[in-house]
Write a protein that binds this DNA or RNA. Structure first.
Length: 710
DNA sequence: GAGCACTGC
């Protein structure tokens, strides 16, 4: 078969010439030794110790990064402007170097020794950790001292020493809740701003406000190219500068005709690359676990058919729920033949694989969409954005020139793909975000200046939820309860359930359930052992429902001393349970801060499970479904939607009333993680709510109607 | 009788 794709467009320019010149003039060899002799007496101002040999070696490499060419320009701009937008492509060195430039100049500006920090945010924990380690090394200091990082569950920084702190964007938002003017920071750098995470978007709005109240604070927004103008318009008056990247050229090849079946086209392209292209590993982007496993098997089969006429291949799947040991395999070099990694979007930003020369981009990914009407979040396979397509292509040019095969036409790239992926804030349930904003003192949500304001309906829905939970009062102000709720890293319903659980004498148990609900699904179900996995899961099952099943798993895990062998034998995801244990500790600390007692009902008491189920309802009374006797289907109490029990539920019967943790829209309207409750308990809550004057918009049902059905 | 893209607090 001929290669069908003929159109070639070179997307990336080589930007190595200037840096090559740079390292030549710096002199590698003899000159370096001479330099060292001169500067070896120089003392590291941070430690008071002479610089180590490796400091100078790294310094030479740092000086070759594109961003060093513009160090002076940046420092001048920083002095003259409150807000800078820095556009830097992959490989410019902005994430490691800019914060150090800032540190050098800001320190010079404040000789009074007043300790204020520089923050640099990252969307992901791993990045915050690994970048700060690298920077500590570059500065020849110990991580956690002058340079540190803060992520959930781990604070590797020191209040007395740390000057430069890398942290997740979500973490900075948490800090802002206690310190709304972010007074401990002198400069805040928001990195990877183009990713537009929910936390980054909220920080944008918050910092725009804070900058007006703190003329001494400076903000640096760092982003990849595409949205620079939009950012400049939002941060009006910001100084904007561009730094070139350093990526090898990537040749883009498009399909001539639209592909009917992108999975088949993918397999065909892999085979073609393997037969006709030179050496180099292949990275394939697909949408999900099942599709990936399926394609991996088919590629193996097709390449086996070729027989000896082509070299060996190693086909490896990659997605987040893969056990870490299997994930690690993608980084191992293959002794002979070609490595083919078939991955989800995880390889687009979170994981970087070296040695990739060919990228196959079918143009799809699974994306979260939110519908405020039904309060549902769902995952949909959707076309990616142009920005995302460029990011994928760039993965082929990290080590040497590469090729990217787009399995769609050039016309559809230009005409059908959106420029940017829709920001997360427009695709999410905002109940928790609105609670955070209220806690940050932003009362007027309508006039809060967000880069992309969400639909009014989404904000209204969030306010409604918070109001009915008692987090907001009639005027929309945060109540005492709302304030405590905002301190928990949980959805508002879950915070409320946890805060009310001591009143039901079961806070230990609810705490464990919250933790289990906060981590990925702990039940493993490998394709080759489905039956055994289902049997193992059934042993944890409880007749009252899935929440108590989760509690059983957690208790049994602890009873077995967190034994990895036990996890494996019972098809339980050890990583998830460890995470639940971490979450539990964190939540317990927050509870202690508010004097929320940890208590349990006597296990032998008939009320043990009843109390737990009542506590569930205290938070999730808006997520109740009723079995309709005429149809045999469940319908939601709130808006009379027909819903179906998710097949993963352990319930083997259909109780009249159930509370559900989530409503997911996939092949049908499913409710997942459900527990049997009593209609009278719901009626009691409704009466109490109505007495306090709260209207819930319960689909036109009056209280009398609801009482009649109980 | 299904699915869980990916992050983050």
């Amino acid at each position: 078969m001929n290669m069908e794709r003929k159109r070639k467009v070179c997307m990336f320019k080589m930007v190595v010439s200037s840096s090559a010149k740079m390292s030549k003039s710096g002199g590698s060899g003899g000159a370096t030794t001479k330099d060292n002799a001169v500067v070896s007496s120089v003392i590291n101002p941070w430690t008071g110790m002479p610089y180590s040999q490796s400091y100078y070696e790294i310094l030479e490499k740092r000086k070759t990064l594109p961003v060093w060419q513009q160090k002076d320009e940046f420092l001048k701009a920083l002095k003259a402007n409150q807000c800078i937008i820095l556009v830097g492509e992959t490989g410019s060195g902005k994430t490691t170097q800019i914060p150090q430039f800032v540190l050098e100049s800001v320190n010079a500006e404040t000789p009074d020794g007043k300790r204020m920090m520089i923050a640099c945010t990252q969307p992901r924990r791993v990045a915050a950790m690994s970048v700060s380690r690298r920077v500590a090394e570059e500065m020849d200091v110990k991580i956690g001292e002058e340079v540190g990082y803060t992520i959930r569950f781990e604070d590797c920084s020191s209040t007395s020493k740390t000057l430069l702190k890398y942290l997740t964007d979500g973490m900075l938002l948490r800090e802002a809740m206690a310190d709304p003017l972010l007074e401990r920071y002198k400069v805040i750098i928001l990195d990877e701003a183009h990713e537009r995470t929910l936390a980054t978007d909220v920080l944008f709005g918050l910092l725009k406000k804070v900058l007006r109240n703190r003329p001494d604070l400076k903000l640096v927004v760092m982003s990849a190219t595409l949205e620079a103008e939009k950012f400049q318009g939002y941060f009006s008056g910001a100084y904007c500068m561009k730094v070139p990247g350093r990526l090898h050229p990537v040749e883009i090849l498009y399909s001539e005709e639209p592909e009917k079946n992108y999975v088949e086209a993918t397999i065909r392209t892999v085979v073609q690359i393997h037969m006709f292209e030179g050496p180099g590993d292949v990275l394939v982007f697909l949408t999900g676990e099942e599709e990936i496993e399926d394609v991996c098997r088919k590629i193996d089969k097709e390449i086996a058919k070729l027989g000896d006429q082509s070299g060996p291949v190693k086909v490896l799947p990659l997605y987040s729920t893969l056990p870490p040991a299997v994930q690690q395999k993608i980084f191992e070099p293959v002794s002979s033949g070609r490595k083919i990694v078939v991955s989800t979007n995880i390889a687009e930003t979170s994981l970087t694989i070296d040695g990739i020369v060919y990228v196959i981009d079918p143009g799809f990914s699974k994306q979260k969409v939110y519908s405020p009407r039904g309060c549902v979040e769902s995952l949909l396979v959707s076309p990616i954005s142009k920005a995302s397509a460029c990011q994928r292509a760039g993965r082929a040019g990290r080590t040497r020139p590469g090729k990217c095969f787009r399995l769609y036409t050039e016309k559809s790239f230009h005409n059908h793909l959106e420029a940017q992926t829709c920001p997360e804030i427009l695709r999410s349930n905002l109940a928790n975000t609105v609670l955070t904003l209220k806690k940050l003192g932003i009362d007027d949500l309508v006039h809060f200046d967000l880069m992309d304001p969400p639909a009014p309906e989404t904000v209204m829905r969030a306010l409604e939820v918070l109001y009915s939970l008692g987090a907001l009062d009639d005027e929309g102000n945060l109540t005492k309860l709302g304030e405590i709720m905002s301190e928990f890293p949980l959805d508002p319903q879950m915070s409320k359930m946890l805060i009310f659980s001591p009143g039901f004498h079961c806070s230990n148990e609810i705490l464990s359930i919250c933790s289990m609900l906060s981590v990925p699904n702990c039940f493993l179900r490998p394709r080759e052992a489905r039956k055994a996995a289902d049997e193992a899961k059934a042993k944890f099952g409880h007749m009252d429902g899935d929440h108590i099943t989760l509690l059983n798993v957690y208790h049994t895990y602890k009873k077995n001393d967190e034994d990895p062998v036990w996890c494996c034998q019972n098809f339980v995801n050890e990583k998830a349970l460890k995470a639940a244990d971490n979450v539990r500790q964190q939540l317990a600390q927050i509870m202690a801060r508010f004097n929320l007692k940890l208590c349990s009902t006597d296990f032998k008491s008939g009320d043990y499970y009843i109390n737990i189920r009542k506590a569930l309802l205290a938070g999730y009374f808006m997520q109740v479904a009723h079995l309709e006797s005429n149809t045999g289907h469940y319908s939601t109490v709130k808006d009379n939607q027909v819903v179906h029990l998710h097949p993963s539920s352990c319930l083997d019967h259909k109780p009249e009333w159930i509370v559900y943790h989530e409503y997911v829209l996939t092949s049908r309207n499913f409710i997942r993680t459900v527990t049997n409750i009593c209609g009278d308990w719901l009626a009691e809550i409704m009466i109490a709510l109505e007495k306090s004057g709260k209207k819930l918009g319960y689909g036109g049902l009056t209280l009398k109607d609801r009482k009649q059905t109980t």
